[in-house]
Simulated scan of single mutants.
Amino acid sequence: MNITLWIITAILALLFLAAGSMKLAQPKAKLAAAGQGWVEDFSDDTVKRIGTVEILGAVGLILPALLNIATFLVPAAATGLALLMAGAAITHARRNEKPNVIINIVLGILAAGVAVARFGPFSF
């Protein structure tokens, strides 16, 4: 089970690192033109903050466990990312973006699963 959790955690970290980097690197107008219409509902600063939270969450999923320092941060980061995905699902649902809602729900469930497992029977 530990290997499965590491695989899920690594996939989540890569996805959130990529998504966060995209939000930090590209201007809001370019994100909107690329199909990320939800950015129209938020300020530039908020979009950048969301990207920063995603990157910090990705780092928090992996780095504490690899270094064996403050490993409680792994499930804490997973919990934060699950909550972020809940907010994202609500935002996309309000905009009637059903494919994005499904992606947010799947990522949120995976992050919540990592949080429960790492807080519980498979902690470090």
Rank of each mutant, 00 (worst) to 15 (best):
N2T: 12
T4K: 12
T4M: 13
L5K: 04
W6L: 12
W6R: 10
W6K: 10
I7A: 13
I7T: 12
I8P: 04
I8V: 15
T9V: 12
L12Q: 05
A13M: 06
A13D: 04
L14A: 06
F16M: 02
A18L: 11
A18I: 10
M22R: 08
M22S: 09
K23T: 08
L24K: 08
A25S: 15
Q26H: 09
P27T: 03
P27Q: 03
K28N: 07
K28L: 10
K30A: 04
A32N: 08
A33D: 12
A33M: 11
A34G: 09
G35F: 15
Q36L: 13
W38L: 09
V39S: 05
V39N: 02
E40T: 15
E40M: 14
D41M: 10
F42E: 09
F42M: 12
F42A: 11
S43I: 15
D44F: 08
D44C: 08
D45C: 11
T46I: 08
K48V: 03
R49Q: 13
R49W: 12
I50T: 02
V53I: 15
V53H: 13
E54P: 06
E54W: 07
I55E: 02
I55L: 06
L56W: 04
L56R: 00
L56I: 02
A58F: 03
V59W: 00
V59N: 02
G60N: 05
G60M: 02
L61K: 00
L61N: 02
I62F: 07
P64Y: 07
P64A: 07
L66I: 10
L67K: 05
I69G: 06
A70H: 11
T71R: 04
F72S: 03
L73K: 03
A76P: 00
A77Y: 01
T79G: 02
G80M: 10
G80W: 00
G80A: 14
A82L: 01
A82T: 01
L83V: 06
L83E: 05
L84M: 11
M85N: 01
A86M: 14
A88H: 04
A89M: 11
I90Y: 06
I90M: 07
T91W: 05
H92G: 11
H92R: 11
H92Q: 14
A93L: 13
R95E: 13
N96I: 09
E97K: 14
E97S: 15
P99F: 15
N100I: 13
N100Y: 14
I102Y: 14
I105S: 14
I105N: 14
V106M: 09
V106K: 10
L107C: 08
G108M: 09
L110Y: 01
L110M: 08
A111I: 00
A111G: 00
A112V: 03
A112Q: 03
G113Y: 00
G113R: 02
V114W: 00
A115Y: 00
A117H: 03
A117M: 05
R118Y: 02
G120L: 09
P121T: 12
S123T: 09
F124E: 12
F124L: 13
